[in-house]
Simulated assay, not measured.
Amino acid sequence: MSSVAEVVGSTAAIGYGLAAIGPGVGVGLIFAAYIQSTARQPEAARITQPFMWIGFAVVEVLALLGIAFGFIWAGNPIQ
């Protein structure tokens, strides 16, 4: 029996695509919380801004780890 459609590719690409959703949502939540806190207390903006950048960096490291592990564990393509 012949197949009508054949899937060829790497599961690592699918895995990284799914792994990129988390950091995307995380960055959105971090900046939304910063904007909301600055709107509520504008005088505290200078105090909360470093925490925003630290949170942003931590979330982006997770995304970079996801792509690095995707390349490391690429394995064999689906056949």
Rank of each mutant, 00 (worst) to 15 (best):
S2A: 02
S3K: 01
S3P: 00
V4S: 04
E6Y: 00
V7T: 05
G9I: 09
S10T: 09
T11K: 04
T11I: 13
T11G: 01
A13H: 06
Y16I: 10
Y16R: 10
G17L: 07
G17Q: 06
A19W: 03
A20L: 07
I21S: 04
G22D: 07
G22Y: 03
G24Y: 03
V25G: 00
V25H: 02
G26L: 05
G26A: 15
V27A: 03
G28W: 13
G28L: 14
I30T: 10
F31N: 05
A33K: 13
A33Y: 05
Y34C: 08
Q36L: 09
Q36Y: 06
S37R: 07
S37H: 05
T38V: 15
T38G: 01
A39K: 04
R40Q: 12
R40D: 10
R40I: 14
E43C: 01
A44D: 15
A44L: 14
A44G: 06
A45S: 15
R46I: 07
I47H: 09
I47A: 15
I47V: 15
I47Y: 12
T48M: 11
T48Q: 13
I54D: 09
I54H: 09
I54K: 13
A57V: 13
A57P: 11
A57Y: 01
V58A: 14
V58N: 04
V58K: 04
V58S: 11
E60V: 15
L62E: 11
L64S: 12
L64K: 01
L65F: 13
G66V: 12
I67E: 02
A68R: 03
F69I: 13
G70F: 04
G70M: 02
F71R: 05
I72H: 05
W73I: 10
A74S: 12
A74K: 10
G75P: 03
G75I: 14
P77C: 02
P77I: 07
Q79D: 12
Q79R: 10
